[in-house]
């Protein structure tokens, strides 16, 4: 199997980030990007860049690029973890209903005026959706891979309907359009606050998840095999589902229900790194960050001055990949 190298991905990530900042209506050179960053970090006392261009880089594009990186990394990581613990190659925060639950939570909080607490609402929503999906799967006779997915689809439909109803009931005009665009998945208008929130969620959840990376390998042959290798299966499952619910919740609160990132990226990475999670998880995070960065850059520049919700692009790429995975793993589903 070909090996991807982490340092190479890291270099690609940084280069992509710098390049993405230069894309947009105002032409900015990579040199100017460096200058602005150096200036704001106190490394360069006098900035050669004009105040306006400095603001475009520092206030608009950088926070958005960083938010995209974190959201992509978080969604890809969540997807990879869910695929391992449900033993379903089609598992993804979006398909399991977590994203819809998070959206419902966030919209509910926003509509009762708790706009600042939207991330918390999203977390409750994704956790609730997850608990409900597992409960339904349990009622069907055990949380097997396909039952968890079927339950997730049911939850996703229900939560989406409830969200749409809430918006129909209370939103008007501009806010309606704004919420709708957010629901389709959009990083438009991301601020430093969003970047900080997304990176905080990553900093909190990544070590917990990576600590279980080796134990996730033991799930390759199912719960019994994992347990016979000394893994505490229920504890691992609940800890990791909690961590992915938190990650998904925060990412949805920031970027809306951006689908398929958690499906597309881990599958692509798996083809190159193999399934050992010590390698897969960090590579999937970096690849997810790069994927999200470029799809978001396309979303904001393709139809300039209008913004395409990035969720549309990820779905356009993701749906065919979903079909590919479905055909490839026919036996599981």
């Amino acid at each position: 199997m070909t090996r991807l190298s982490l340092p190479a991905l890291l270099v690609l990530l940084v280069a992509s980030a710098i390049a993405a900042v230069t894309f947009g209506p105002a032409d900015i050179t990579p040199g100017e990007v460096w200058s602005v960053i150096a200036h704001h970090l106190g490394l360069l006392p006098e900035s050669p860049v004009s105040r306006l261009r400095d603001a475009i880089v520092w206030e608009l594009r950088l926070p958005r690029v960083l938010t995209a990186l974190c959201v992509g990394a978080g969604l890809a990581l969540s997807g990879a973890v869910m695929q391992a613990i449900t033993r379903n190659p089609l598992a993804d925060p979006y398909l399991l209903g977590l994203s819809s639950g998070a959206a419902l939570g966030a919209v509910s909080f926003a509509l009762v005026g708790l706009t600042l607490l939207m991330p918390l609402g999203a977390f409750f929503g994704s956790l609730g959706a997850l608990a409900l999906a597992l409960l339904i799967a349990g009622l069907l006779g055990g949380a097997t891979p396909s039952r968890a997915i079927l339950a997730g689809i049911c939850i996703a439909a229900l939560a989406s309907a409830a969200t749409s109803f809430l918006i129909f009931w209370s939103a008007t005009g501009d806010s309606y359009r704004e919420i709708l665009s957010w629901l389709m998945g959009s990083l438009s208008g991301s601020l430093w606050f969003d970047a900080a929130l997304a990176s905080a969620a990553l900093v909190l959840c990544t070590p917990i998840i990576l600590a279980y990376a080796r134990a996730l390998d033991a799930f390759a042959f199912g719960d019994t095999a994992a347990a016979s290798l000394g893994i505490d299966v229920p504890r691992l499952r609940w800890t990791l589902l909690g961590a992915t619910a938190l990650l998904t919740g925060i990412m949805v609160a920031i970027g809306g229900a951006i689908g398929f990132v958690g499906l597309v990226v881990p599958h692509a990475v798996r083809l190159m790194t193999g399934s050992r999670h010590r390698a897969l998880l960090p590579h999937a995070m970096l690849a997810g960050a790069i994927f999200m960065l470029w799809t978001d850059t396309a979303a904001r520049t393709l139809f300039d001055p209008r913004e395409l919700p990035v969720g549309i692009i990820t779905a356009l790429i993701g749906a065919p990949v979903f079909l590919f995975v479905l055909l490839r793993y026919r036996r599981v589903t």
């Binding site: 190659p89 080796r214 019994t224 095999a225 193999g274 050992r276």
Partner: peptide, 26 residues
């Protein structure tokens, strides 16, 4: 104590060595 099941398949991309190495997890 080690356990071998009747049959255990996987959809994961693992080499034979990867699978055998699972035995070192404990």
């Amino acid at each position: 104590v080690a356990f071998v099941e009747q049959s255990a398949a996987t959809e994961e991309r693992l080499s034979v060595l990867d699978v055998v190495a699972l035995g070192r997890i404990p």
